[in-house]
C-alpha cells in the first residue's frame, strides 16, 4: 500500500464521491415510477450512498485544514499506459470472442497478451498456449459438449 499525503491533482476520494453521487442520483430518478413498496429499499440505499459520499468528500476538505481528519490518498495507477493497454486487450479479447469464436481468439490472444506484457520466451509461450487452449477444447468441446461462442469457420 503506497500512501502519500500530498499528491498532484484532485484527491481520488473526491472524484469517487462525485461519481457515486452522479450515478446514484441518476438511478434515484427512476424510483418515482415504481410501486411504493418496491421503491423503498432502493431509495434508502441510494440516499445512503449519496449521504456517505458527501461525508467522504467533506472529509477530504477537512483533512486539508485540520490534522484531526484523515483522508488517506491511495495511488491508483502504478503504470497508466500499461493499465490502458490491459483494458484495451481485455476489450478486444471479449469482442473478438463473440465475433470470431472462443477457441480461435484464445489461441491467438493468450500468447499475444503474455508477450506484450513481458513474457518473451516464444517457444514456451506457444507450448503453454497449446496445452491451455487444447485442454479447454478437450474438456468443454469434447467431454462436456458445451457450446462456447462458435468459431467463424464452422458457422
Amino acid at each position: 500500500m503506497k500512501q502519500t499525503t500530498s499528491g498532484q491533482g484532485p484527491h481520488p476520494d473526491l472524484i469517487t464521491g462525485i461519481a457515486i453521487i452522479v450515478v446514484a442520483g441518476f438511478l434515484l430518478l427512476r424510483t418515482p415510477d415504481m410501486p411504493t413498496m418496491s421503491s423503498l429499499l432502493p431509495i434508502t440505499m441510494l440516499s445512503t450512498l449519496i449521504g456517505l459520499s458527501v461525508l467522504m468528500i467533506l472529509r477530504v476538505f477537512a483533512a486539508t485544514r485540520s490534522e484531526r481528519f484523515k483522508a488517506p490518498r491511495h495511488q491508483i495507477f502504478e503504470n497508466l499506459p500499461r493499465f490502458l493497454g490491459i483494458v484495451v486487450a481485455i476489450g478486444l479479447y471479449v469482442v473478438s470472442v463473440s465475433l470470431i469464436g472462443f477457441y480461435t481468439t484464445t489461441a491467438v490472444m493468450v500468447p499475444l497478451v503474455a508477450w506484450s506484457f513481458g513474457y518473451r520466451d516464444i517457444k514456451r509461450l506457444l507450448l503453454a498456449d497449446l496445452i491451455f487452449t487444447g485442454g479447454l477444447a478437450i474438456i468443454f468441446a469434447l467431454l462436456m459438449g458445451q457450446d462456447l461462442p462458435t468459431e467463424f469457420f464452422i458457422r
Partner: peptide, 13 residues
Amino acid sequence: PLLGAFIITLVLV
C-alpha cells in the same frame, strides 16, 4: 503475464 492471461480466459469461460 501468462497467468494473468489464463485467468482472464478462465473467467470468461
